[in-house]
Design a protein around this nucleic acid. Structure first.
Length: 192
DNA sequence: AGTGAGATGGCCT
DNA sequence: GGCCATCTCACTA
């Protein structure tokens, strides 16, 4: 099982967000392996995107890993108790990333309910992803993304505005959230 | 089914 | 001191 090539992460962030749908997130933790199929993502477009943590080229301890080469993980703590997993995209010049919002549980979970990983906080909680993974490269060691040949047609990809970014002015309306149409594991269906 | 509040901590001004 | 790329539970009706 091969992790995605580094060239996969050197394309446009929006394209990567769409292409990550259907890919498999693999997590190894304490001798156990978890696998889940990504069904929902959001693109964050760097220094010109008001919703992005690196807006205005803001380099802080938190955002530093977004300035890594594409293919690294950016994990941060939100609301004091939840972690969110992002995939860093493009080169070190562009601090952009894709938020992994939801996935379908495949292997390794006690409870394999379709909504178990439906939301970025739940996904990290259930897959034991924390700041320990922040800045790590997505290789096969502890966390990686792989392709099992599962195809998602363009017509099955729905786009809409991102969730929870009302503070971002005009950028809150950008259609940068992507999910697989009618999939039972997306975080919520009702959003224009 | 829809709304509202609380939990809880690091980061930024 | 105030804000969050969230989630769950408790309440309305």
């Amino acid at each position: 099982m091969q992790s995605l090539s580094s060239s996969f992460y050197q394309r446009s962030t929006k394209q990567i967000a769409k292409d990550l749908l259907g890919k498999i997130l693999v997590r190894k933790y304490k001798g156990k392996e978890y696998r889940a199929r990504i069904v929902e993502t959001e693109a964050y477009l760097g220094i010109k995107d008001k919703a992005c943590h690196s807006f205005g080229d803001k380099r802080t301890p938190r955002t530093l890993s977004m300035y890594l080469e594409g293919g690294h993980a950016y994990v941060y703590l939100i609301y004091g108790m939840y972690h969110c997993l992002n995939v860093v995209t493009r080169s070190t010049k562009y601090p952009e990333a894709v938020l992994i919002r939801a996935a379908e549980p495949l292997i390794g979970f006690k409870d394999s309910g379709k909504k178990l990983l439906a939301g970025p906080g739940k996904l990290c909680r259930e897959m034991k992803i924390t700041k320990a993974q922040d800045g790590r490269y997505l290789s096969s060691k502890e966390l990686m993304i792989t392709d099992d040949g599962f195809k998602v047609k363009n017509s099955q990809i729905i786009s809409c505005p991102r969730i929870g970014v009302d503070y971002a002015g005009k950028d809150k309306d950008l259609s940068l959230r992507f999910y697989i149409k009618d999939h039972p594991s997306v975080s919520c269906y009702f959003r224009k």
